[in-house]
Nucleic acid binder design. Structure first.
Lengths: 251, 251
DNA sequence: CGGCGAATTGAGTCTGCTCAAGAAGGGTGG
DNA sequence: CCACCCTTCTTGAGCAGACTCAATTCGCCG
């Protein structure tokens, strides 16, 4: 009876983690029932965020990791002159907040681009529990490292010399990330403004707009404001991976 | 007697950590003598690397963190077409290797730009010890997070629209990093080629060369091949922090 | 001393930026 | 419900900074 109750418990917890996109953190790890309950205890299910709500701001003292459940979150940092540099877009299943651990103060601002919900994991408590659960600890390191690797894709993209290549790379990455979440990879609604995208890509807004238009003219995508449909995924991939000098050969 | 021996031991260990630039990892943490010895045990002092030696390569299976003791290490990643994107330059006291933890396979290549030496810390063993030493654990998280934050500076730099600004930002950062290591901040020898620098900055080699020449013409730096002397640190800082459109006002 | 790679410099082209105007939604208030 | 406004995005014209191609110089190493 007690055993069967516990089984149900575990399943519920696993369910909640699965729904919370925290699966990467708790599911693959061989965590027993009581341990999983402890982990689940510290995870706060945050109230939904509305568009333009801040999850945290540069300089905030509180430190947590966040996992995006639904919606999209933009991270950015303030430049000395006052404008901002967009650092990343976080889709469901992705993590953010690692920037704050160093000095217990967030070094970036996180803002919801649309209605979103996240799970919050107070870092101090997480590390406390992780210290006693080697499997969880390993998972945590892996997730951190994966985030590290993913962040390295940003300069790779910005290193490309042509606007069209950068945009292709971005659209390709969105498509892949959606595929990983079992979402339709070839048609989606971008949640960020052209301005945000321009900052992220290291371009000005007009250039981004023109790049969209050119991709559309070339029948590689169909775009209507923020709605994007990938018509020719192969061509998009070629463009994204094209040697910069070969651009004219493809586009 | 035994106690006094232990004191000497600890001092020696701390010394070795201090010299190894591992100080961030072990010194500030309140680690007792025996614990420190355990940490010291797993740290391998690697043979010096010669110029162009690889510390690890993209795809390598072995996973360790490395701390640069002397010299400079370049990390880069292969692009689909065959050329490489430089991801970072690691100076004494700085860490690398975090990219490999996710799937126990390095996702970047690390190559010595000059004679260098590093300390190697097998990650599995480190995390094992850290699990038992909360203070060390915290330090480790902090270091990882700091690395994360530092990496975010790369896209910030690449987001700048002007070559001169990017180079100024880079030189400013080298100067700061040297200052932190109590090295002469205003005069130094760059260990990377113009090609490496160009890739890191998202420019072509000729543009980097011209940017150096312009900084020299404007009496902001004195440059002779890879030797750089900062003549006007204030102007350099202004340039690095200048609104992109203000460029002509300064330069 | 000669050859070789790295860096600089020059000339010309082109992509992306600036400035500017116009179109298209979305939201608000009458 | 419609008219209006305001923001966002698109498109155009012109300019300029970065790229390409090419030649030359400068060190360095054999």
């Amino acid at each position: 009876m007690a055993a069967s109750n516990q089984v149900i418990d575990i399943n519920e917890l696993r369910q909640s983690c699965a729904g919370c996109a925290l699966n990467a953190l708790c599911l693959p790890a061989a965590i027993g029932g009581r341990d999983l309950a402890r982990l689940d205890d510290i995870v706060k299910r945050r109230r939904p965020l509305a568009r333009n709500d801040f999850l945290f701001r540069e300089g905030d003292r509180h430190t947590s990791l966040f996992v995006v459940r639904q919606g999209a979150i933009k991270t950015s940092t303030m430049l000395p002159e006052g404008d901002t540099q967009v650092l990343g877009f976080h889709l469901p299943g992705e993590i953010l907040g690692l920037d704050g651990v160093a000095d217990e103060r967030h070094r970036a601002t996180a803002e919801a681009l649309e209605e979103a919900s996240v799970c919050e994991i107070p870092f101090a408590k997480l590390s406390e529990i992780a210290a006693q659960l080697p499997a969880l600890q390993r998972q945590l390191y892996r997730i951190v490292s994966r985030e590290f690797v993913r962040e390295q894709q940003h300069p790779v993209m910005m290193g490309r010399k042509h606007a069209l290549t950068r945009l292709a790379l971005f659209l390709h990455s969105v498509s892949e990330r959606r595929r990983n979440q079992d979402l339709e990879p070839h048609e989606f609604q971008l949640s960020m403004s052209r301005q945000d995208l321009a900052s992220y890509l290291g371009l000005v807004i007009e250039t981004v707009s023109r790049a969209f238009s050119r991709l559309q003219t070339q029948q590689i995508i169909d775009v209507d404001r923020r709605r994007v449909r990938i018509l020719d995924a192969v061509a998009l991939g070629q463009l994204a991976n094209s040697e910069d000098t070969d651009l004219r050969a493809i586009a």
